[in-house]
Design a protein around this nucleic acid. Structure first.
Length: 360
DNA sequence: AAGGCGGGGGG
DNA sequence: CCCCCAGCCTT
């Protein structure tokens, strides 16, 4: 075994975090955890993982659930295509493979939502295969260990990093090794505060020798994100806001941002347009109905990865027309008490909170 | 090869 | 305010 792997495994064996998905060898549980962990921090994932495994303890249970139930369990975790893909892949595994996950990287990658990272993680952790993983943590550790000064967003560099990762995976205990490598990146080889004094690989680390730890990995500079004003309506069927009165919610198209989630209908304000006019226009365009704008409820600021929004919510009254599914996947007339069964994005959950406060 | 896709945590 | 994160899919 190479020196890096040996030192990492010794470090891992001395102590490592006790996480829910490390207490099992169930491939399904490891699959769920790895998908949740895509672009998402461990502390965020833990409560979602616990709730998910209680509600969908087996791949059959997941396959048998509705998409709405699945999205509801994912509500607030972000990147909702992960939930849609996991659901579809579970149905495929049950229908075509008798509920058993494939064990090789190439077969795992055939499933929706499983790319090279997740396939490597499942294959090594659940099935003891010597497959590499390369995530943000591993990239940081490797670029520091070898003091790599090339732009890690370039595909040629990515290929080299995968090759490097592959060359280091030991045949014995590859799953423990991969988890150790990622945990080292998380707890010691941190982006802005590497704890080299505690690192078992410090003597082997070329960046540490050169003093370039904080300059690794190298990425291109980011661009500023645009800001949009967005408007949403609580459209009351009878015009009278009340805790037991019906209002309209709509479901976003499955292929859109926040696909499949429910929301208060509305949309982006156009240049030169005031907020009430923007709301009337969006509702007419998406649903084919006419509304009258009522009083302002609340404004919510939210930052997505590539843009920021301020969401302005208004009360409104349904005037004419039956909702048509032009720019929406579905619609429903509901009361406040019905909302718990529908998955909403974080911004609309804040509108719901304001609504609850105002009406109850 | 590039862009889209959430949300939370930390400095 | 900024940055970062256990990536994947589509085009």
């Amino acid at each position: 075994m190479n020196e890096i792997a040996a030192k990492l495994l010794a470090w891992w064996d001395a102590d490592h975090a006790d996480l829910p998905w490390r207490r099992t060898r169930d491939p399904y549980a490891i699959w769920v955890a790895e998908v949740m962990l895509q672009q998402t921090q461990i502390s965020t994932v833990i409560p979602y993982f616990e709730r998910w495994m209680a509600r969908f303890p087996t791949v059959e249970a997941l396959a048998g659930a509705s998409l709405s139930e699945v999205l509801k369990m994912w509500e607030g975790l972000g990147y909702y295509s992960r939930a849609r893909h996991l659901h579809a892949a579970a149905q495929q595994v049950v229908a075509e493979r008798n509920g058993r996950l494939p064990t090789t990287v190439s077969e795992l990658m055939q499933l929706k939502g499983i790319g090279r990272y997740t396939a490597g993680a499942i294959a090594s952790i659940a099935f003891d295969q010597p497959a590499p993983v390369l995530d943000g943590n591993v990239i940081r550790v490797l670029t520091r260990l070898y003091d790599i000064d090339a732009d890690i967003t370039r595909s040629a560099i990515r290929r080299q990093l995968w090759q490097l990762a592959e060359s280091l995976v030991p045949a014995h205990r590859p799953g423990a090794y991969n988890q150790a490598l990622m945990e080292l990146g998380q707890v010691l080889c941190q982006p802005a505060r590497p704890l080299c004094a505690l690192c078992p690989l410090a003597e082997l680390c070329q960046a540490r020798q050169a003093g370039t730890q904080l300059e690794r990995p190298v990425r291109p500079p980011r661009r500023r994100t645009p800001h949009y004003d967005v408007v949403a309506g609580i459209i009351w069927q009878n015009g009278r806001p009340a805790a037991d009165a019906p209002f309209l919610i709509t479901q976003r198209p499955l292929d859109a941002l926040l696909g499949g989630l429910w929301e208060f209908p509305g949309g982006k304000q156009e240049p030169g347009e005031n907020l009430p006019d923007a709301l009337k226009r969006e509702i007419q365009e998406e649903l084919g109905i006419t509304i009258k704008i009522g009083r302002f409820l609340t404004s919510i600021k939210h930052a997505y990865t590539h843009f920021r929004i301020t969401l302005h919510a208004f009360h409104a009254t349904h005037i004419a027309g039956q909702p048509q599914h032009i720019g929406v996947a579905d619609h429903a007339w509901v009361t406040l008490n019905d909302l718990h069964q529908y998955p909403f994005a974080i911004t609309d959950r804040k509108i719901i909170a304001a609504l609850n406060q105002e009406l109850t």
